[in-house]
């Protein structure tokens, strides 16, 4: 088991103005799963995601990550786990605009203390996996949204983490480009990486193998997807969009 959430709650604000963003969320996550967290806007999806990603702490409840209790994790230890065990993909890409594509992908390795030469090699390799080797020296603003998100995925992959967290990874993309990103995530999942993805889009969610549904901060459903949409090389059910040449 990669992760165990026990009765996670998170509220914001003080006494009178308290918002409960997450209430008693419990679930287990196995290695190799592809989970979509779904629900309407404001239902607490990002809140849950941030707690799982060790970017935030629950107000109550506990999270066991890779066998480790995270309640008393020091900030530095949490940073270390984020660095080498978790890869983040955000809706707004969150690339550093002053760094080239390659430098952005290198960044986690900088904080992992990897030497420059090896860093560049591994970053180039990660860029190759997302099919953007030729864009290594571009600035983020010179790239399309889909390309920027693939750079972000390469950055999430570069430390070879067990878990990838993607918060609305297709939220800012048109459906065609969004599908390419989904195909990429599925491909990574097929290679054994555990993926948790937040989305409010049913079609996007149907690429996952399991869907956890949230409403007003409470888990209202948690089930496997029977008619999963597969787009990868082993895809059984291609929906007509082109599979780009990665992998």
């Amino acid at each position: 088991m990669l992760l165990k959430a026990i009765s996670l709650s998170r509220s914001y604000g003080h006494d009178s103005t308290t918002t409960v963003a997450l209430r008693d969320a419990s679930f287990d996550l196995m290695d190799g799963e592809f989970v979509a967290i779904m629900g309407p806007s404001g239902s607490g999806k990002s809140t849950l995601m941030n707690i799982i990603g060790l970017l935030d702490r629950p107000t109550s409840g506990s999270l066991i990550f890779a066998g480790e209790h995270t309640a008393n994790l020091s900030p530095d230890h949490a940073a270390r786990l984020r660095n080498c065990r978790i890869g983040f993909v955000f809706q707004s890409y969150n690339l550093l605009g002053r760094n080239t594509a390659l430098e952005n992908v290198e960044l986690p390795l900088v904080y992992a203390g990897v030497r420059r030469r090896e860093r560049e090699l591994r970053a180039a390799e990660a860029l190759d996996k997302v099919g953007l080797s030729d864009k290594a020296q571009r600035w983020p603003l010179q790239l399309s949204g889909g390309e920027q998100q693939r750079i972000a995925i390469a950055r999430a992959l570069v430390t070879d983490p067990a878990l990838i967290l993607a918060d609305e990874p297709t939220g800012a993309l048109d459906s065609r480009t969004g599908n390419e990103i989904m195909a990429l995530l599925q491909h990574l999942n097929e290679q054994g990486r555990t993926i948790i993805m937040v989305t409010h889009d049913e079609i996007v969610g149907s690429h996952a193998s399991r869907i956890i549904r949230l409403q007003d901060g409470t888990i209202i459903g948690d089930q496997d997807v029977p008619d999963r949409v597969l787009t990868g090389s082993t895809g059984r059910k291609l929906r007509g969009w082109g599979v780009t040449g990665f992998g």
Binding site: G53, D76, R80, F88, N94, L96, L107, Y111
Partner: peptide
């Protein structure tokens, strides 16, 4: 925030 998310420690 981005740097912290991808693994920067406070002292970094």
């Amino acid at each position: 925030g981005i740097r912290l998310a991808i693994g920067a420690r406070r002292k970094d």
